[in-house]
Every structure is written in C-alpha cells, then in structure tokens.
C-alpha cells in the first residue's frame, strides 16, 4: 500500500511536466503570440522585449529554461499583469475558486447522497421518480442559465440575496447552489445506481441473514459498496470544476482563478497559462490518487500491487 502511494506520487511529477510540455507546444504551435495581441510596437522595442524574455533564443533553449524554472517552482512574471509573479496571481485568486468549489462539492455530496440513497431504497416510488427527474433537470439546465435565473428571482424580484460579487456568507449562496446543481444531480444518479446494485448482492443478503438490523446493513455494508462510483466521480469532478467555476465566476463577478485562466489563454500570457495548467494538473492528479487510495478502504476486495 505504502509502496503504491509512493510510486504514484513519484509519477505525478513527470506527468505534470508532460502536461506542461504539451501545453507549451500547443501555445507555440498556435500562430501569433502575446505581443501580436497588443498594439504594434516599434521593431527595436520588440527586439528588446524579446531579448528580455529570452524569446530570441532557439526553441530548445527556451524550452530548457522554462522547464528548469518550473522545476524550481518559479513560473516567472505574468506578461499581461506587469510586475506580478504567476505564483502571486495564483495564490491571490485560487482561494476564491477553492472556497466556491469546495462548498459546492460538499453541498452536492450532501444532497446527492441523501437523494440517491432514499431513491434507491424506495425504488419506483414517487420520491424516486421525482428525484431522478429533478436530477435530470439539473444535468440539462446550463449553469449560465440557472445562475442568472436565480439572480432574477432572488435578487431582482424578491430582494433577498445580493446579485453578485464577493462578501459575506449571503453572497456565497447563489454561486454555490449554481455550481452544485449539476454535481448534485450526477451524484444522486450515481448513488442510486450504486446502491441498487449493491443491495441486490450476496453479501448484503448474508448481512441480513445473520440478523443485523437494517440500519447497520444499509449504512455499514451497503453504503460502502454503493458509494464507489461516486468516489470515482470525484477526480473528473475536480477537473470539470474549473470549467464550471469560470461561468459562475463570470455570472457573479467573483475574482477566481477560472476567469484568470481564460483571460490568460485569450491574452496568450504564456507564463501564466503554464503556471495555472501545472498547478491544476497536479491538483487533479492528487485528487485522483486520493480517489484510488480510498477505494481500498471502501471495498476490501481491491488490493494494490
């Protein structure tokens, strides 16, 4: 087990470097660069700028320098936001996205697990159909439609909640709900399917046969197996949380990392793009590792080699 974790952690670093390399190639293959999006500069000044950022060197030298810097966790300065290092920008904007994402995920887990378990236990009941229809609705309403509709109703019509920006807990309600909707829907569906499958399996019958009460059977034996698909969903969910937060950050005017990332791609702000990609890919891989480790606790049949 320890060896497995150690090996996986060792793999994260080269994988992240590979992702950064592919991203770098993608940026370089695309025509134009940061300077072509700005106003035209006199050639002499452009020469100087290129020299300052090492852009006059052959590509392999540039690649080598970039990799060397990244290995020292130094992503350099942003091209667009002059005088601010990439690390600073990430450290400043990530907390917003992280707060939003984490709260949304917890909310989604709470709603999704509860709805999924109850729906599975009362299969084919009105509650089951209602929940699954609601979950389907959650999957089908784009979050950039849901968010503004919530604003329209709760801010502009009822005057209950602030429509945008970052402030106290009241400001968080609508963004978190908007972000959580689709995940709650997914988790409810996964939980229901997982529970239905597990509750029909032999070991549940054994647990009942040996006289355990229904609560223990359900929570101690059923849930552990039934929740496995939900856990597998956590990894990809974190990845898509980035795309999800972009919309929510835009709709609710929150200064998170998602918008900074989109802006950096549109601006061709190479150091910032690479920094955010490296940061996020490591985050995603750590989440995936955590998911793989937790399989072992949930399902004792899974062994690591």
């Amino acid at each position: 087990m320890l060896k497995f974790i150690f090996n996986r952690i060792l793999i994260i670093v080269p994988m992240a470097l590979l992702v950064v390399t592919v991203t770098w190639v993608l940026i370089r293959v695309a025509p134009g660069n940061f300077y072509s999006t700005e106003r035209n500069l006199p050639p002499a000044i452009e020469e100087n700028i290129k020299k300052k950022y090492g852009l006059d060197q052959p590509w392999y030298v540039q690649y080598g320098t970039m990799m060397g810097n990244i290995l020292r966790l130094d992503f350099g300065d942003s091209l667009k936001y002059q005088g601010q290092s990439v690390n600073e920008i990430i450290a400043r904007h990530f907390p917003y996205s992280a707060t939003l994402g984490l709260l949304a995920y917890l909310l989604a887990l709470a709603i999704g697990l509860f709805a999924g378990i109850v729906a599975a236990l009362k299969q084919n009941s009105a509650f089951d159909y209602g929940t699954m229809a609601a979950a389907m609705l959650g999957l089908s309403v784009p979050n950039f439609v849901l968010g503004p509709i919530l604003v329209l109703f709760f801010s502009l019509y009822l005057y209950w909640l602030p429509p945008a920006r970052w402030g106290g807990p009241l400001y968080l309600i609508m963004p978190v709900v908007t972000l959580a909707a689709i995940y709650a829907a997914y988790i409810a569906r996964l939980t229901r399917a997982g529970m239905l499958e597990v509750m029909r399996s032999d070991y549940i019958r054994t647990a009942r046969a040996k006289g355990l009460n229904e609560k223990t059977v359900l929570l101690k034996h059923g849930l552990r197996g039934g929740i496995v698909p939900v856990v597998s969903f956590t990894g990809p969910a974190l990845a898509s949380l980035l795309a999800g937060t972009v919309v929510v950050e835009k709709v609710f005017a929150i200064p998170g990392l998602g918008n900074i990332f989109i802006q950096s791609v549109l601006n061709r702000d190479e150091p910032l793009i690479l920094g955010i990609v490296a940061f996020l890919s490591i985050l995603i891989m750590i989440a995936n590792l955590a998911v793989d480790i937790s399989y072992g606790f949930l399902d004792p049949r899974i062994r690591y080699e």
Binding site: V19, V22, L26, A30, V246, F261, V265, S281
Partner: peptide, 13 residues
C-alpha cells in the same frame, strides 16, 4: 495526459 489538460485550452488553440 490529454484528460489532464483543460479542454478549453485545446479548443481555443
């Protein structure tokens, strides 16, 4: 690896 790259970046490129 492609999974780990935000798809939005690939689409934009």
């Amino acid at each position: 690896i492609i999974y780990a790259i935000p798809y939005i970046l690939i689409v934009i490129v």
